[in-house]
């Protein structure tokens, strides 16, 4: 039966660990070994809205594995001519062995997965899911600490609308971690997630000196009806050198990028800064995802 990766909520802990372990194995391969894993395989991308990091890292991932990529460019797609996503997606997926889809419409990846014979990977569907981002986030944490359990993890910024923090919180529910939510009142994590995951530590103060991981996200101006309130609040949650230096020496600072002022460039040189490595981890993480979904054995 074909496997897809549509939502973090479809995965249990052993599924997550399986993806992470495959990513680890992939990173141990030499370039030549990696290129022998999926020679001749084709990955298609059906991106109905712009993306930089996700698309490029999937393209790199399949190429490192010896395969190739075909891309549906949203600006010249047949969808502009009126073809629906289902037909377009089915045709493009049919040209490939695995398909990554990104869409502003929530549920698109699941719909396409039901209608094609190839594995479908959700590259992001509106405010709903971005499971490969969550897996690379977990991979980054596990790579740094050798584990995920028993860590103290803070989530900072726009916890109300941030797809990445919602998904990360739901995934961390499978682990024995302490989560602290740090945000202004206006961008608190939705109560449904707080209750579901059982998070008790919430604050609007920058309590970060005891954390192992701080996951920062951007607070967007457009979320605040009162612009002055935004200006007041925004500065309270900016990460500069002085604030990050207060974090534990062996802690890490993550961010899904792009950043727009919420982490100052002066932080980049601090030992805690991991956001660029985090982005780089997207490649082995996605290599691992492709391999697992295609059911290929790395050692074969």
């Amino acid at each position: 039966m074909k496997k897809n990766l549509i939502s973090i909520n479809d995965l249990d802990r052993s599924d997550i660990e399986s993806f992470l372990s495959t990513a680890s194995e992939v990173e141990e391969l030499t370039e030549r070994q990696a290129a022998d894993v999926l020679p001749g395989y084709v990955l298609s991308t059906v991106f109905l809205e712009p993306s930089t990091r996700t698309r490029l890292s999937f393209e790199t991932a399949i190429q490192r594995l010896g395969g190739d990529t075909i891309n549906l460019a949203e600006e010249v797609s047949s969808i502009e001519k009126g073809e629906n996503i289902t037909d377009t997606g089915k045709v493009v997926a049919g040209y490939s062995d695995v398909c990554v889809v990104r869409s502003p419409y929530e549920g698109t990846a699941r719909m396409l997965a039901e209608r094609t014979d190839v594995p479908v990977i959700n590259g992001g569907d509106g405010a709903n899911q971005h499971p490969t981002q969550t897996l690379l986030d977990l991979y980054t944490i596990r790579k740094e600490f050798g584990k995920i359990d028993e860590l103290k993890i803070g989530m900072l910024g726009d916890l109300k609308y941030g797809r990445t923090v919602h998904s990360l919180a739901e995934a961390l529910d499978h682990y024995d971690v302490d989560i602290r939510l740090i945000s202004p009142e206006e961008t608190r994590m939705p109560r449904s997630i707080v209750e579901e995951v059982g998070i008790e530590d919430e604050t609007n103060k920058m309590k970060i000196d005891d954390l192992d991981v701080l996951y920062a996200t951007r607070i967007q101006k457009e979320r605040f009806p009162d612009k002055q309130e935004y200006e007041r609040v925004k500065d309270a949650f900016i990460l500069d050198r002085e604030r990050v230096k207060k974090m534990k020496d062996d802690s890490i600072l993550m961010h899904p990028l792009p950043r727009v002022g919420e982490i100052k460039p002066e932080v980049d040189k601090l030992p805690q800064a991991r956001y660029f490595e985090q982005a780089s981890n997207g490649v082995p993480a996605r290599m691992g995802i492709i391999i697992k979904l295609l059911g290929v054995d790395i050692d074969a």
Binding site: Y105, E106, M111, G126
Partner: peptide, 13 residues
Amino acid sequence: PNPHCVTNTDEPL
């Protein structure tokens, strides 16, 4: 009820 749900687009779904 979610206006951004794919079931509320022109898709046959």
